[in-house]
């Protein structure tokens, strides 16, 4: 197994955000962390990215003690829900950031950085927008810049927090297919957080259904549909999309 999460627990004050969470995923898997807000999915993602620290438990990735590495050494490409693009930098500067901050010894030459930025821009289909600032882009374009920026560091794992959360329905569908095909091309272990069960079931190889800081069940989409392990899973997946439309806009964004 490439990624192994073992009994991870995390509390904020007295609230247990993660309670004894364990799962494993093979190399190149596309894993969805699915659950209602407050279920701990974003906390788990942030722990994998090194932005939050687990109280107890272990994580190993490609036989390395993942939690012992500081965030900056993990090369985990993290895409934030609100993108967190550097607002004072152009698109190309944003994408080049991860390469330009490398220590001189391992920093690519200026020409090499420019070449890679150009490749990434065409990969995310934003060739013409390299000189724009984030505030001049649409939500979908910002999303792709954030992805290109994360990919620039040649990440060992890709972590996406509600990657389609801030986009409207049409753009969301298009990006979903594009992301799936990108994943197949790159073969990177990818973990994404979502509260949209349709999105999770359609995109992921493995779906981890989370509730109150625990993983209720982790399985391929088909198995999840056919054999839900707990009443919660059955209930959560059973929600029709018409109910969901009524529920989602009311959910507060939880950090």
């Amino acid at each position: 197994m490439s990624l192994l999460v073992d009994k991870v627990t995390k509390r904020f004050d007295r609230f247990a955000a993660l309670n004894d969470v364990s799962f494993e995923a093979p190399k190149g898997a596309f894993v969805a962390l699915l659950g209602p807000s407050g279920s701990g999915k974003t906390t788990l993602l942030r722990i994998l990215g090194g932005l939050e620290f687990a109280d107890t438990g272990r994580v190993s990735h490609e036989n390395e003690d993942w939690l012992a590495k500081p965030a900056r050494d993990r090369r985990a490409g993290f895409v934030f829900q609100q993108y967190a693009l550097f607002r004072h930098m152009t698109v190309e500067k944003n994408i080049a950031f991860g390469l330009e901050v490398r220590p001189r010894k391992i920093r690519p030459s200026r020409a090499e950085i420019a070449r890679r930025v150009k490749d990434l821009l065409s990969l995310v289909q934003l060739d013409d927008l390299s000189r724009r600032y984030p505030s001049q882009l649409s939500g979908g374009q910002r999303q792709r810049v954030a992805l290109a920026r994360a990919l620039a560091i040649e990440p060992r794992m890709l972590l996406l927090d509600e990657p389609f959360g801030a986009l409207d329905a049409k753009v969301r569908k298009d990006l979903r297919h594009w992301l799936r095909s990108l994943h197949e091309r790159l073969g990177l272990t990818t973990i994404f957080v979502t509260h949209d069960q349709e999105e999770a079931l359609e995109l992921a190889d493995l779906v981890a259904v989370m509730n109150k800081g625990r993983i209720e069940q982790i399985a391929p989409p088909q198995e999840l549909r056919d054999h839900p392990a707990t009443p919660f899973v059955a209930d959560f997946l059973g929600q029709g999309s018409e109910q969901q439309a009524a529920v989602i806009p009311l959910r507060p964004r939880v950090r």
């Binding site: 965030a71 900056r72 050494d73 967190a84 620039a152 560091i153």
Partner: peptide, 8 residues
């Protein structure tokens, strides 16, 4: 956070 995750 983004900067740190990019290795800065």
């Amino acid at each position: 956070e983004a900067a740190v995750s990019l290795g800065a």
